[in-house]
């Protein structure tokens, strides 16, 4: 059995003259939460549709859980769960009936189905409202129910297309927490698309960045920050005169210096020892209270990548 849950090889999908996915080559290891990041229209949803065999690729091929997406899509779908662009709930039916329907689809025996529905709805705080028609629910509750539907049959692979989109911050945070707990407990591979970078940073062990259908970078969030971000130093203190700033800007390893009240933000051209810079600041007459080294956030890496592509 392959170590990868998802393998794509030069996958291409065109819609008329528009290329939605452009030579996508990607490997997603089993058992991790993988974040697929990109702006709107980057090709994230199309990629999920291709991986589920809901669309045929124009060129290239993909394997999901060891099955070919074009010839063995039924096998893939029978082992996966998907929360796509929309929650996909039957709003005229109750929450319980929605799960009952999908439980029957997955051929879960009745006692196991009932027990699993109760377990998931209880965990997500929806058990007491299971008889209510879903159409009357808030978006956050619907999204939680959709997550319960995805996890119902304990799939090996879960596709989540922007699961927290449109939710208020509190609901989104709660859902993220539920998702992380449930995914860890169920031990599944999760393929998550989002344009919420903080979310990806919190949830994902690996991320891939896509733009205009092309994969720009892939790796763990920390790897990407180190590999693609600019190292920086933050110095907190007093007496950051023009003389201090000029001395710093003259150093070859310093890219950019920014002065904000009692803080100096120094962007470095490469990872270097910061002690000489601190000595320089002190020698130029400033008083240093605190020095922090840091890497940029995933969001900054992402924005850098987007800028580079422009």
């Amino acid at each position: 059995m392959s170590d990868y849950a998802i393998c794509t090889d030069n996958l291409i999908r065109d819609f008329g003259t528009v290329r939605a996915v452009d030579h996508l080559t990607l490997q997603v290891p089993r058992g991790i939460i993988f974040g697929f990041l990109g702006p709107n229209g980057a090709g994230k949803t199309t990629t999920i549709r291709l991986l589920l065999g809901l669309l045929e690729p124009t060129e290239g091929r993909a394997e999901v859980l060891g099955f070919d997406t074009q010839t063995q899509a039924d096998e893939i779908r029978s082992r996966s769960g998907a929360l796509l662009e929309h929650p996909g709930l039957y709003e005229r039916l109750s929450a319980e009936d929605n799960l009952e329907f999908y439980g029957r689809i997955w051929r879960m025996p009745s006692p196991a189905r009932q027990a699993r529905i109760k377990e998931l709805l209880t965990h997500l705080g929806l058990w007491e409202r299971r008889k209510e028609t879903v159409g009357t629910w808030s978006r956050g509750m619907k999204q939680k129910l959709a997550i319960a539907r995805v996890l119902l049959h304990r799939p090996s692979l879960i596709f989540l297309d922007e699961p927290t989109a449109g939710l208020d911050p509190i609901a989104a945070a709660a859902l993220r927490e539920d998702l992380a707990t449930l995914a860890t407990r169920e031990g599944a591979t999760v393929f998550l698309t989002t344009h919420n970078l903080a979310e990806a940073e919190k949830l994902c062990q690996e991320v891939g960045v896509i733009r205009k259908g092309q994969l720009l970078a892939v790796g763990s969030p920390s790897e990407l920050r180190t590999r693609l971000g600019t190292p920086r130093v933050e110095i907190i203190g007093r007496g950051f005169s023009e003389n201090v700033l000029t001395s710093l800007r003259a150093r070859p390893e310093v890219g950019k210096v920014e002065h904000q009240e009692n803080r100096l933000l120094i962007e470095l051209r490469r990872a270097v020892d910061t002690a000489p810079l601190v000595s320089l600041v002190v020698a130029a007459g400033a008083q240093v209270e605190e020095v922090r080294r840091g890497n940029p956030s995933l969001e900054e890496v992402f924005l850098t990548l987007m800028e580079e592509e422009k």
């Binding site: 809901l54 998907a82 929309h86 709930l89 689809i105 997955w106 596709f159």
Partner: peptide, 14 residues
């Protein structure tokens, strides 16, 4: 219209 078709198609149903 109600955006349930794609989820249904993504299921194991033949």
């Amino acid at each position: 219209e109600r955006h349930t078709l794609e989820t249904l198609l993504a299921s194991r149903l033949p």
